[in-house]
Write a protein that binds this DNA or RNA. Sequence first.
DNA 1: CCTGAAATTATCTACCA
DNA 2: TGGTAGATAATTTCAGG
Lengths: 138, 138
Amino acid sequence: MSVAEIGDRVGLSSTPCWKRIQRLEADGVITKRVALVDQDKIGLGLSVFVSIESGDHSDAWLKTFADAVSAMPEVIEFYRMAGDVDYMLRVVVADMRAYDQFYKKLIGTVPLKNVTSRFAMEKIKSVTALPVPPMTVS
Amino acid sequence: MSVAEIGDRVGLSSTPCWKRIQRLEADGVITKRVALVDQDKIGLGLSVFVSIESGDHSDAWLKTFADAVSAMPEVIEFYRMAGDVDYMLRVVVADMRAYDQFYKKLIGTVPLKNVTSRFAMEKIKSVTALPVPPMTVS
DNA sequence: CCTGAAATTATCTACCA
DNA sequence: TGGTAGATAATTTCAGG
């Protein structure tokens, strides 16, 4: 959508609309512009949720672990969790064989107490749009 | 990045490069172009992974459940899983209060056998880039 | 399928209310 | 903050190998 078109929708001409977008980018609200791709159509049809219990909770261990896992391109998301699970990953790979390779790489990197892999059979919904509340006109 | 710049990187002038991108869009490989936004900066700092066991496994139940959950904007991802967990959600909300409202909405929609919420304390990595293997020159 | 150039459309800058 | 208008740079179409 062009800036002019966005401007129309919010009732603004293109210059002030463009300036607002520039500010959102300068402030880091907008982090990047990307093209979204169909996972299946590029042969990366397997999504896996991985729950990890660490055992070791030292700062040094965490740094090693965080750096190693972050560097793995198959890891799309990586969170430190509250509760019974310490870390949670969302991993995207081509198939089970590729996942097994990833899994061996993962458990070979640092010692882990427990790793549970849960496999997605069907993607029912997947969006990037965040639930922004509708603007209230003042 | 401009089409001309992409063309430079792959050793192509802008016209064929543009045509290839058009074809990727026509074929549905590229599904959309979006701007990515910093969750925390727009006040949606809480990510929750929700594991669901359904109990009921009929087609009718699934359709009702899938439609209802898909319609909830807080649900960013929604998968049908293999194994002990039947469904897995990734939910984004402002805070615990907002999550509680979402949770009540979720369990009030259809009967569910078990719902487990796991809360993210720290986002260590979150990308949209898929692990595309590097091109091999033929 | 590619190059190169022309036509169109968008972004971005300068300046004013 | 918002607006108009013009400069710049992108995308998209076209002619031709």
